[in-house]
Write a protein that binds this DNA or RNA. Structure first.
Length: 257
RNA sequence: AUUUUCGGA
């Protein structure tokens, strides 16, 4: 059961929902973990009714992972009301992950006041709760509130930093994004592919882009993806260096998008 | 072995 479940999870993680389903359907036995894995797989693919079928008719018992996975299925499908109902129907005590999933459901629907209410009401908050709240304010463009949340965080990880850096970069505050990036490095956090998507977009010259690009690959071992090239091309376009931009498009090891 | 937070799809 364990090895089959692992295979289901691996297929799901690589987006091969059909293969995951095939393995799950042909398993000799299933337990709560394998069912949870399949519910999560359907959730990620936006297949709510299939997730519900497993949740309601295949599984005899539910644990907190089952409930949280099902809640996420509704969120992914844009069903906020159903997500709320499921959250209310969950047996207490609800795990922190369920609270976090519910906060995310409100974030996806831009209901920031409900997010804040849940965040304040939950019995205990972890780093993910803080990051979810931060992402809510960042995504809705409420930079002031985002900064306030960030400042109040006692612990920050790469996700937290990525969220604020992206918030600044996306709102045209490139300088602030770069400053936050430097603070991130000073704090000893490890930048990843997502960090650099914002950092490269926040650059304002070819020299700056080039220096961050080589530091990305050389110092931090982050592989360049097409999005990184797109950011640099965007910088070149914004500075009017169209010749260089075209040259980079031809030079980059990706099909242009 | 499974669920919650950041970019992209």
């Amino acid at each position: 059961v364990v090895s089959s479940t692992t295979i289901v999870a691996l297929y799901a993680a690589s987006g091969q929902l059909e293969a995951a389903k095939l393995v799950f359907d042909t398993m000799a036995q299933r337990n709560i973990v394998s069912c949870n894995t399949m519910v999560a797989a359907y959730a990620a693919g936006g297949h709510v009714s299939d997730a519900e079928r497993i949740f309601h008719t295949v599984m005899p018992l539910h644990d907190s992972v089952s409930w949280t996975a099902m809640l996420t299925a509704h969120t992914e499908a844009g069903q906020l009301e159903e997500a709320k109902n499921l959250f209310d129907a969950m047996p207490a005590p609800r795990c922190v992950q369920a609270w976090n999933a519910m906060i995310t459901a409100f974030v996806d629907n831009m209901e920031l006041s409900s997010c804040q209410f849940l965040f304040d009401a939950m019995p205990a908050r972890d780093l993910v709760s803080w990051n979810a709240m931060l992402a809510g304010y960042a995504r809705s463009g409420r930079l002031g509130s985002a900064k306030r949340v960030f400042a109040r965080m006692l612990e920050r990880d790469t996700v937290s930093w990525n969220t604020v850096i992206a918030a600044f970069a996306d709102s045209g505050h490139g300088q602030d994004a770069m400053l936050m990036f430097l603070r991130m490095l000073v704090d000893g956090l490890v930048p990843n592919q997502i960090t650099y998507t914002s950092v490269l977009a926040a650059c304002c010259s070819w020299d700056e882009s080039r220096s961050h690009f080589s530091s990305m690959v050389g110092d931090h071992g982050v592989g360049a993806v097409r999005a990184h090239y797109s950011c640099v091309i965007g910088v070149l376009a914004s500075t009017g260096e169209l010749g260089k931009a075209w040259e980079l498009i031809e030079f980059m090891p990706f099909v242009p998008d």
